[in-house]
């Protein structure tokens, strides 16, 4: 028995153990992937199932076709395109405005020193701990009162919904952006100031371009959050034409869910697909932002 062969045997068995462990883990991965992907596959399959009902669905539908999509897109009772457009409009306006508000404020927090700065920063953090959902009843009552004076800002208007979303703009994202601005050396500002640039010029011409990558990530995350928001939209919007896609789908699911399962799945898939694609294509960027504390909405 030479020492070499003993060592070889150990390394061989270690290699085998490692292969075995990888095989086991791949098996576990397969089970987990089945668990994660099955509902989505089921939704896709349902959307192509021509019978369109929950009871008759199989994973690979017989006579797969686009019937459900046709029904969905031509339905007068459920204006899918209208809902989709509402969602896109509200999410775009909200994420752009909220990002502008946040970035300008973050710049002030990063570059100026003033009394109450610390308190305000901490206050913003604390305020975010309380879910906005909690003040739901009060928000609803307040918007209905606002509508008694300005009907165009009252219940059932997109403007009111956007205003309420923007109320949460001064949030945790300020911390995130401020952190990035802090890392930009002040020498840049100061040399620009020597040349007579104003704060606003420094902000727009020097700082903003440097922030672009992080701002895009935050805008996407905030867009996704607004797009998926349901409760406030459900409470504030009252009529079918005003619904966002999420509210529309929920209402749709409420009525004869089992018979209209296929049509619902078609709508759900079309609503989910853009967001899924954004996530999967940009996953590294978005995950980076998320784990650093960026929030949806």
């Amino acid at each position: 028995m030479s020492r070499v062969s003993f060592a070889q045997r150990i390394s061989n068995s270690a290699k085998m153990r490692r292969n075995f462990s990888i095989a086991i883990r791949l098996l576990i991965a397969a089970v987990l992937i089945f668990f994660s992907v099955f509902p989505v596959l089921w939704m896709i399959s349902a959307s192509f199932n021509p019978t369109g009902s929950l009871a008759t669905q199989t994973l690979i539908p017989a006579n797969a076709g686009l019937d459900n999509y046709q029904k969905l897109l031509t339905s007068k009772e459920f204006p899918f395109w209208r809902w989709m457009w509402n969602s896109i409009k509200i999410s775009s306006i909200t994420s752009v405005l909220s990002l502008s508000i946040t970035t300008v404020a973050a710049y002030a927090f990063s570059r100026f020193r003033f009394r109450g700065r610390l308190t305000m920063l901490k206050g913003i953090l604390l305020l975010n701990v309380f879910p906005g959902l909690l003040a739901l009843v009060a928000t609803f009552l307040m918007i209905s009162q606002l509508g008694d004076v300005f009907p165009s800002l009252g219940l059932n208007t997109h403007a009111s919904l956007i205003l309420v979303y923007l109320g949460g703009a001064m949030g945790i994202n300020i911390w995130l952006i401020k952190g990035y601005i802090d890392t930009i050396p002040r020498d840049i500002d100061e040399s620009a100031m020597m040349e007579g640039a104003s704060d606003w010029q420094i902000f727009t011409m020097l700082i903003l371009p440097l922030l672009r990558p992080i701002l895009i990530v935050i805008a996407i995350i905030s867009y996704i959050g607004t797009y998926g928001e349901f409760v406030l939209a459900r409470v504030l919007l009252k009529s079918t034409e005003q619904y966002t896609l999420m509210v529309g789908l929920q209402i749709f699911a409420g009525a004869q869910f089992q018979q209209r399962w296929g049509v619902f799945a078609a709508g759900a898939l079309m609503g989910a697909l853009p967001i899924m694609l954004i996530y999967l294509l940009l996953q590294d960027h978005i995950i980076g932002g998320l784990t650093q504390g960026a929030v949806k909405g």
């Binding site: 992937i33 089921w42 939704m43 797009y227 349901f230 089992q258 609503g271 996530y279």
Partner: peptide
């Protein structure tokens, strides 16, 4: 594997909750 495992996170929660509601329907 990671891409497939984060799929649940990428679908708006409202949609997946409703899909689960359909999948868990007692008879159908």
């Amino acid at each position: 594997i990671r891409s497939l495992l984060i799929i649940p996170y990428t679908v708006p929660a409202l949609i997946t909750i409703l899909i689960w509601r359909g999948m868990m329907n007692p008879q159908l």
